[in-house]
Amino acid sequence: MSQEHEKPVTLGVAPGLNDLVDQSSWQKIQTYFIGLVLSAILTVAAFYFVQSKTIWGPSIPVALTVLAVAQVGVHLAFFLHLTTGPDNVNNSLALAFGTLVVALVICGTLWIMYNMDQNMPIMAHMNAKTHSLDQHQGGTPGITKPVAAVVEASVAGRVRSISCDVGMRVTKGQICAVIEVPELDSEHVKAEKLQIEAMARIQQEEIALS
């Protein structure tokens, strides 16, 4: 046993391999078979709980999650032969780290997205709020701080660009859309034509002078 202490590096056992050297093939198959039976029981239980009405409806997702976690445990123990033994430290530490990252990704996503969902009213809510606000503001003008605002065109014309969209956050005073007024547009074109004519005339005069 002194050899045990002389070992410079412990690599441990490869993941997926059984560390019991002297097991017969039959014993190894038995391990896989136990895993199969346990997984089958857990799977059947999960499908049964969904189909039947034996457990209280809102608790079904919790029950299903428990069954799934148990089945993953069965797979790790009986199919991947993961143990808590010292030769499996590397494998189980890697697994623990993987589980941590998975938990961070899933819980973090759900947390952030729930928070955004709470702070971002969807269109249906916004319309409802605008209507109630219109009536409310009619009674006490200038006192209430608007919780929603209707943006209306200040001039008649054609929309040249829109820089807002449904669900987007905007700050107060931000430009949401630019409207072109066709009358002003045509005046601009006319003025440009006059300018070109004047330039041409100047050129003619210059040629005549020289």
């Binding site: 190894k28 895993g35 199969l36 089958a40």
Partner: peptide, 12 residues
Amino acid sequence: LLSSFTCGLILV
């Protein structure tokens, strides 16, 4: 699930 079991048999 069955294929996971037979996959174990490959290794055995």
